[in-house]
Structures are given as C-alpha cells and as structure tokens.
Simulated scan of single mutants.
Amino acid sequence: MKFRSLLNLTVFSAALAVSAASYASAKADIVDTAVAAGSFNTLVTAVKAADLVDTLKGPGPFTVFAPNDAAFAKVPAADLEALLKDKAALGKVLTYHVVAGKVMASDVVKLTSAKTVQGQDLKIAVKDGVVYVDGAKVISTDIETSNGVIHVIDSVVLPK
C-alpha cells in the first residue's frame, strides 16, 4: 500500500514538473524564445549588437517577423558583417521586423500592411494561401511568448 502511494506521488510529481516546464517555456519572452529555438542565432547576435535585448524582453506586446538563420545566410557575408558593425543601421533593419502589438496569423492575413516600430509599413500579401511580408515568405506562425508573438520568415526584409 505504501509503495502504491509513493508511486502515485512520484507520478504526480513528474506530471507537475512537466506542467511547470511547459508553463515556464510558454512564459519565455521573445528573446529567450528565440535563443531556445536554436534557429535564430544570427538574429539574436544582431539584437545584442543593436542593444535591443532589453526592448524585446520588455512588456510589449510585440509581433516579430523573425528571419531564421537560413534567411540570414542569404545575405552576402560582407554585407551582413558590415551591418552588424553599424549599430544605427542594424537597429533600423531589426525594428523594421517588429510591429507593436500582438498580431496573430489569423489577423495578419486580413492586413495589407503593418506599421513597424522602425516607422515604415511592411507590405503584407497573401498568395495561394501563403502570407508574404515585403516579399519574405512566412514559414511558421504564432509562436507565442510572454510579451508577444513570433512569425518566422525566410528572408531578411529591409526598410526603404
């Protein structure tokens, strides 16, 4: 009888630990979520270089159209290196990927543009059921964070 109670307590404790881990990961902010994903290393490096970590860890909410590492790989190495060294230009490019507010995929498809934190509008288009943001294909949507949402895009978009 004691063994069965101990077993039930162990199972309950394990379930509680899994639930707590799920809750903690669901509550990660945009930066921590990007780091944990492991596919946004260049973006995280750029956010750090532009001193935008505190902003993207802030209360938000923010919507980030986040280029993954494969998207950054499309940028010529010399251009990316130069951008990472120019804090002002880098900040403009990165904030062009951010929209104030939490805009879920179901909302994005209803828009034709969205005002970025950088100040310019991102052009949004839906073609054959696929969403494009300034020509970049949205390849994953609705990654919820404690301070907003991330939508993954396949290219880096640049302000005009």
Rank of each mutant, 00 (worst) to 15 (best):
M1R: 14
F3N: 15
R4T: 15
R4G: 02
S5R: 15
S5Y: 07
L7Y: 10
T10R: 15
T10K: 14
T10W: 11
V11R: 13
A14F: 13
A15K: 12
A17W: 01
S19P: 02
S19T: 12
S19I: 02
A20R: 09
A21H: 09
S22P: 00
A24C: 02
A24I: 09
A26E: 12
A26Y: 06
A28P: 05
A28E: 15
D29I: 01
I30S: 06
V31R: 06
T33Q: 05
A34T: 09
A37D: 10
A37Y: 01
A37G: 14
A37N: 13
A37M: 04
S39V: 09
N41G: 03
N41I: 00
T42C: 01
L43Y: 06
L43W: 06
V44Q: 05
V44D: 06
A46G: 07
A46H: 05
V47G: 02
K48V: 10
L52M: 07
L52R: 13
L52E: 08
V53N: 10
L56T: 12
K57P: 05
P61T: 12
F62Q: 15
T63I: 09
T63D: 11
V64F: 05
A66K: 13
N68I: 03
D69H: 08
A70K: 15
A71I: 09
F72H: 08
F72G: 10
V75A: 03
P76R: 11
A77T: 13
A77D: 14
A78M: 03
A78I: 08
D79S: 14
E81M: 02
A82K: 15
L83A: 08
L83D: 08
L83N: 10
K87C: 06
A89S: 15
L90T: 14
L90K: 11
G91W: 03
K92Q: 14
L94D: 11
T95P: 04
T95G: 06
H97R: 05
V98T: 11
V99W: 01
V99T: 11
A100M: 02
A100H: 04
G101I: 03
G101S: 03
V103R: 10
M104A: 13
M104P: 04
A105F: 06
A105Y: 11
S106F: 01
V108Y: 07
L111Q: 15
L111S: 14
L111V: 08
T112W: 01
K115A: 14
K115Y: 08
T116C: 04
V117S: 11
Q118I: 03
D121P: 09
L122K: 12
L122M: 10
I124T: 04
A125Y: 00
A125V: 13
V126M: 05
V126E: 11
K127I: 07
K127E: 13
D128M: 00
V130Y: 02
V133D: 07
V133L: 02
G135T: 04
A136R: 01
A136W: 02
I139V: 15
S140H: 10
D142K: 04
I143W: 04
E144Q: 14
T145A: 12
S146C: 03
S146H: 03
N147G: 08
N147L: 03
N147R: 02
G148S: 07
G148I: 03
G148A: 02
G148T: 07
I150L: 09
H151T: 03
V152Q: 04
S155L: 00
V156E: 07
L158E: 10
P159G: 06
P159T: 09
K160W: 00
K160C: 00
